[in-house]
Design a protein around this nucleic acid. Sequence first.
DNA 1: AATGAATGAGTTTTCATTCAT
DNA 2: CATGAATGAAAACTCATTCAT
Lengths: 195, 195, 195, 195
Amino acid sequence: MTDSQRSSRAATAAAKRRRLTAAAAQVLHHKGVERTAIADIAQAAGVPVGNVYYYFKTKDELVEAALTEHTATLDTLTAELDRLPDPRARLRGLVTAWVTQRETAARYGCPIGTLAVEVDKRDPGGLDESVARAVRRLLDWAAQQFRELGTDDPDGHALTLVAGYQGMSLLANALRDPEVMTREGERLLAWIDAC
Amino acid sequence: MTDSQRSSRAATAAAKRRRLTAAAAQVLHHKGVERTAIADIAQAAGVPVGNVYYYFKTKDELVEAALTEHTATLDTLTAELDRLPDPRARLRGLVTAWVTQRETAARYGCPIGTLAVEVDKRDPGGLDESVARAVRRLLDWAAQQFRELGTDDPDGHALTLVAGYQGMSLLANALRDPEVMTREGERLLAWIDAC
Amino acid sequence: MTDSQRSSRAATAAAKRRRLTAAAAQVLHHKGVERTAIADIAQAAGVPVGNVYYYFKTKDELVEAALTEHTATLDTLTAELDRLPDPRARLRGLVTAWVTQRETAARYGCPIGTLAVEVDKRDPGGLDESVARAVRRLLDWAAQQFRELGTDDPDGHALTLVAGYQGMSLLANALRDPEVMTREGERLLAWIDAC
Amino acid sequence: MTDSQRSSRAATAAAKRRRLTAAAAQVLHHKGVERTAIADIAQAAGVPVGNVYYYFKTKDELVEAALTEHTATLDTLTAELDRLPDPRARLRGLVTAWVTQRETAARYGCPIGTLAVEVDKRDPGGLDESVARAVRRLLDWAAQQFRELGTDDPDGHALTLVAGYQGMSLLANALRDPEVMTREGERLLAWIDAC
DNA sequence: AATGAATGAGTTTTCATTCAT
DNA sequence: CATGAATGAAAACTCATTCAT
């Protein structure tokens, strides 16, 4: 086997893994963990069912991959916001991004929040920690902004911000009303300005 | 058949239904809708599996009963709070009750909130409406207090309050940390005082 | 207990039995034996489920009652036809009656014929004999007409006639086409005339 | 994977599907649709129950496969008869084949006819159409023979022939008497000769 | 006889995971 | 690594029949 064949295969394999991860993130968000069969993810990724297990040994690993994927999406967003000079502007940018996603939130809820709820009901495993990690990543970033802003108790403020987001996403979803995102989003913006 | 016999049997049947409803509320909250088998609820209620279907035709009906049960619990609480003369005291009482439940919230989340998330992933049915109704009941009560308090936009304030509760419950659960309830609960109390 | 009470109860009981029999005949014809639950028949008869078993010890007995009911309906018809002086006219009247029922036949098939098919698949019991008896009743009446007509092999002719009826009912039902009844009915009339 | 391996496995899979189809055709004919459990078919085919669903997504699909199988059997017969030069001889051959099957007919009825009756009682689905198609296949072949014979109204004659077959099968089954097939078969032969 | 409730065996269907090639 | 096929353990739901009153 030549090096190029090997690396091409590796590339294919990596691509497949990426496709599976992306499919898992999307399908698990839309259908929920328990209602999603491995076959659903395989199909969405265009991968034969039996092959999935060469990339993910269990369904839980796919859930974890989805969690990681959503975290990565979040990282991309915060990385972009980090280019703004003003921490307040960054926080506002985050809230604005949430509001922009209002239709999705009203239909499917926050990807990480709903996964958190579903994972909590699954038998104890490393997933709880993965969820906590995903949540903490967001909390930490927000706390850093509040810190740079000179706010007292930046962790508390971060908690309030993220709780506000999770709460409004859950209510928007439960009431199937994207306007909840708009209203609460504006309140959060005003709150940030007042910090 | 005498009246007393009839009513005694009716009482037994009604009692069984109540036992099943209570069991459903508890087990579904703890294990989640998808992870709970009808047999789990039957066992918790001390009823043979086959007999459950005499009282509830489908699993969804049990979920609905659980939702109703949680709403009733909430109603009991708000009814008690309604005896307080001051709307602000009532709102504070609600928040205090939430904080008191912090261990449960950290372990299992808010019963209605987590059911809302899980139900959203189940195939469309009357359950979405049941969830929305349960959520709206809480929103309406809160809005009424804000109205009596003379706050502008009572509905908006109610939304903020309930979103705050759902958000803090979800985070407490995701982080397995009851302290989240305490901290955010205090913030909500201060916010109510400032309204 | 007075005599009138006793007889009134007896009357009620008899009436209930009749209602159950009629309901069984209708529901079993429309929904089929296996798809019909005892509860369906009870409901159609306006009788509480538990009570059915005081009149019919098993589901099979209800099927038998339905069979008897359909036979009785047939008897009523043939008794009426028997008032006609001409055996040929009687046979023609029978065929005409079948054609008149074409919509029902196209939708549900012949009551006795479909019951015969379904009963054949049920575990061996007296029902096979009940079915045979119902079928023979019709065969015998037809044979008698052919005999009076002076036809040779009246039994064979009866067989042909009834087979024709069962065949056209089955095809009308399978094709959901009442016209099958009309066309084959006319052929049978011509055949009778030629006998 | 080599081509031969692939085809060998494909052959095995196809063979299993064929075994399941054959088993379905036989067992459903003998025990009836409602009295046959998937497990019965699985056992008859020597396939584990869970595996059946890899080949047939629902019980209805198995029924449809059985219907197709019976149609195929019929096609084999008519294809053979098509080698006869005379359309009359072909029709006679068909009737003779029916009579040859008299013991089976007396015990279980016509496979397609009894399936037609049972399917009619099942909830609406594509099965009605499958039944109609199976019946029409036979009607069409018969009509073609009558057409070649120069008979007027070949469709009507086909209907008469097939109705005759269904009727005599049903009666033979209901009376558990294969002689019905013999007698009516002879009559049909004479009728064909007279056409 | 009357009746709501109880029972428990049976049936279809789903799916995570494993295996043979 | 690839892949179609296999497996077996649930799980929801149905229902004839029985029972307690």
